[in-house]
C-alpha cells in the first residue's frame, strides 16, 4: 500500500521541525534575562554549540548514510545545542562546549540510534559529563549585574571563550551561583540574615536568577498555550519542588532549606520544568506517567539541592527520570475503552 492510499488523508499541519522551532522561540525570554544579568557568555555559547551541533549531526548522518538535509530539518540537534548552551556557565571556554556537544549528539543521541531512539536527554548527558569532569569550569558563574559593578563586555566574553586558561581579570566577574552560596556560605545564619549579608540574593531568589526563571516560565506558558508541551510534567515537577521546600522551610531557621519561591525561581528550575524534563523523546509517555515522572524529577532536584553534593540537581534528576521512564510507562498504561478496571 502506498502512502497515498492510506487514511488519514489530512493533517493538522504541524511538523516536527515546527515544533522544535517553537521550542527555540520560547527560549528567548529566558535567554534575554540571562544575557541582561550575566552578560554575553550564554549567547556566545549557544552560537558556538549550534554550529558544532549542525556540523557533528551532518557528519554522523553522512557516516550513517542518512539523507543529511532531511534529518537536519527536524531541528532536534539545534534544540540540543540551545539547551546545553543555556545550561553552561557564561564563562565557558570553547573546548568545554566542544566536549559537551560531542558527547550529547555523538554518543547520547546517535550511538543509541539517533533521533527518537535515545533514552537519555542528550543535552543533559553532555552537561553531566562536563560537570563531573570539569567541576571548576562548570561552577564558575558570572556575578549578576547588581552584585558586581561591571559585567564582562562582549569583548571580554570572547576572551574568556577563546582562552584556554582564564584571563587574569576573570575573578572580578565570577563567583558561585546564588543557590551555591545559599548552600555553602550560610554558616548557620537565618535565611533572612543571609539575605541581608550577601549581595547575590534578589527579592525572592538569586539575584538575576528570579528573572531568568520568570523568562523561562513565560516561554513555558507559551509552549503550553501552543499545545507543544503538556501540563503534566511541569506541573508534577514544580508541585513536588514547591511542596518539599514548603515542608522543609522551617520558618526560615538556620536549618531551613530555603523558601518555595527561592527554589521555584532559583537555578534551573523553570528551564528544567518546561524545556528539559518535557523533552518528549526521553520522558514518560502515558498521561499518568508524566505526572509521576515530573514529580519524581522535582523530588530529586530538591534532594540534590539540599542534601547532595551539587548546588543544582536538574541535570541529574532528568537523567534519573529518563532512566525510570520505561518502568513508569509500564505501570501507568491507561485503561483502554472496553477494558474493565
Amino acid at each position: 500500500m502506498s502512502m497515498l492510499n492510506s487514511s488519514p488523508h489530512g493533517h493538522q499541519g504541524h511538523s516536527t521541525g515546527q515544533v522544535m522551532q517553537q521550542v527555540m522561540l520560547a527560549c528567548v525570554p529566558g535567554l534575554t534575562a540571562l544575557t541582561w544579568f550575566f552578560g554575553w557568555g550564554t549567547v556566545i555559547n549557544i552560537i558556538w554549540l549550534a554550529l558544532l551541533a549542525l556540523g557533528i549531526e551532518a557528519l554522523i548522518l553522512h557516516l550513517r548514510g542518512r539523507p543529511i538535509a532531511f534529518y537536519l530539518r527536524d531541528y532536534s540537534a539545534l534544540v540540543t545545542a540551545v539547551l546545553l548552551g543555556l545550561a553552561l556557565p557564561p564563562t565557558a571556554p570553547w573546548w568545554l562546549g566542544l566536549i559537551g556537544i560531542t558527547f550529547a549528539i555523538g554518543i547520547a543521541k546517535h550511538l543509541y540510534g539517533g533521533m527518537g531512539y535515545n533514552p537519555f536527554n542528550p543535552a543533559m548527558v553532555g552537561y553531566v559529563v562536563l560537570l563531573i569532569s570539569f567541576p571548576l569550569q562548570m561552577t564558575r558563574w558570572v556575578l549578576p549585574v547588581g552584585a558586581t559593578d561591571a559585567l564582562p563586555g562582549f569583548g571580554e566574553s570572547l576572551v574568556m571563550f577563546f582562552g584556554a586558561e582564564p584571563f587574569a581579570g576573570i575573578d572580578a566577574y565570577t563567583g558561585a551561583t546564588a543557590l551555591d552560596s545559599f548552600r555553602q556560605q550560610r554558616g548557620g545564619m537565618l535565611v533572612s540574615e543571609f539575605w541581608s549579608v550577601t549581595d547575590v540574593m534578589g527579592r525572592w531568589s538569586g539575584l538575576g536568577w528570579e528573572w531568568v526563571n520568570t523568562g523561562f516560565l513565560l516561554g513555558g506558558l507559551y509552549l503550553l498555550y501552543k499545545k507543544i508541551i503538556g501540563w503534566r510534567i511541569p506541573v508534577g515537577m514544580l508541585a513536588a519542588i514547591a511542596i518539599l521546600s514548603a515542608v522543609f522551610y522551617d520558618g526560615g531557621s538556620s536549618a531551613s532549606g530555603g523558601s518555595p519561591l527561592m527554589h521555584l525561581f532559583g537555578g534551573a528550575t523553570m528551564l528544567g520544568a518546561f524545556f528539559i524534563a518535557t523533552d518528549p523523546v526521553t520522558a514518560s509517555t502515558t498521561p499518568k506517567g508524566r505526572l509521576i515522572y515530573g514529580a519524581m524529577i522535582g523530588i530529586i532536584v530538591y534532594v540534590i539541592r539540599i542534601w547532595g553534593n551539587y548546588a543544582d540537581g536538574v541535570a541529574f534528576a532528568v537523567l534519573l527520570g529518563n532512566f525510570s521512564a520505561p518502568l513508569i510507562d509500564a505501570y501507568t498504561q491507561p485503561r483502554t475503552y472496553g477494558h474493565r478496571k
Partner: peptide, 11 residues
C-alpha cells in the same frame, strides 16, 4: 503527506 520522520515521542 510529507515524508515520515522519526517519532519524537511527543505524545
Amino acid at each position: 503527506p510529507a515524508p515520515q520522520q522519526a517519532c519524537i515521542r511527543c505524545g
